[in-house]
């Protein structure tokens, strides 16, 4: 992108994320103001929402980087020791994403196909994603996990769960 004779590299994904943030914070604030403008409702919420929006505005420039400059101007500390990191390689990142999707799929199908079926299918998928190929392991281990999870949690908690077979 070109602004005033200067080439900029734009991180569109990050920009989209900030936009999503702005939209959700604004909607939340509007929702709260719609409920009541009483001080008892907005004392903390409103000022904080304004702060958050202002911070979003401050972060937007970080999505633009001059093409001739190396990244990152706003570095405060050398590195965040606690920041988790995602794998950089495309194939590895894809693995993580697919595993996350499989987790979501399991969660939303728990009540549909039953906990036992959903858990065993997820285990098979997760093992396959992590690189397991031997059919015996792919059958035996998910079964063991399913049995342990279903019976273990049934003994542990007082709530019912939908199951297909067990």
């Amino acid at each position: 992108m070109r602004i005033r004779n200067q080439h900029y590299v734009v991180d569109w994904l990050h920009l989209g994320f900030i936009l999503l943030m702005v939209v959700s914070i604004t909607l939340y604030l509007l929702n709260a103001r719609h409920v009541s403008t009483s001080l008892n409702n907005l004392l903390l919420l409103q000022p904080l929402a304004f702060c958050a929006l202002a911070l979003c505005a401050l972060i937007v420039p970080q999505c633009f980087r001059r093409a001739d400059r190396p990244a990152d101007a706003d570095v405060l500390l050398e590195d965040d020791p606690l920041a988790p990191s995602l794998p950089q390689g495309g194939k590895e990142l894809a693995r993580v994403v697919v595993l996350g999707l499989a987790l979501g799929l399991m969660i939303f199908s728990l009540n549909v196909v039953g906990f036992d079926v959903a858990i065993s299918l997820f285990c098979i998928a997760a093992m396959a994603i992590c690189g397991e190929r031997r059919p015996v392991a792919l059958i035996v281990y998910p079964l063991a996990v399913t049995l342990a999870a279903v019976y273990g949690f049934r003994a542990l908690m007082s709530y019912p769960m939908v199951t297909f077979i067990l």
Binding site: L48, A52, L55, I59, D74, V75, L76, L77, D79, A83
Partner: peptide, 14 residues
Amino acid sequence: GTRYATRGLLAAAF
């Protein structure tokens, strides 16, 4: 501590 001060603050507010 955080790499980007502004992002840390936004995360806290969020």
